[in-house]
């Protein structure tokens, strides 16, 4: 196990590289879902305002 985390002496480069990429993947999923949630919320608000106006 220790051998695995040591990455043949390259741990200081391999793990940060995987961490950065993983962070970009997770953030992309989060950002995409957040932007959809926002658009849905805004659309719902617009519909409500139109309903009150008419």
């Amino acid at each position: 196990m220790k051998e695995f985390f040591d990455m043949g002496g390259y741990a200081a480069f391999v793990w940060p590289a995987y961490l950065v990429t993983l962070a970009v993947v997770v953030l992309n999923i989060f950002w995409a879902r957040r932007s959809l949630a926002r658009s849905r919320r805004d659309a719902r608000r617009r519909l409500q305002m139109q309903g009150e106006a008419s």
Partner: peptide
């Protein structure tokens, strides 16, 4: 993953 992300973002863009 790109396809899934793009489709999700596209829904947001189309709604907006």
């Amino acid at each position: 993953l790109f396809a899934a992300l793009l489709l999700t973002r596209l829904r947001a863009e189309v709604l907006a």
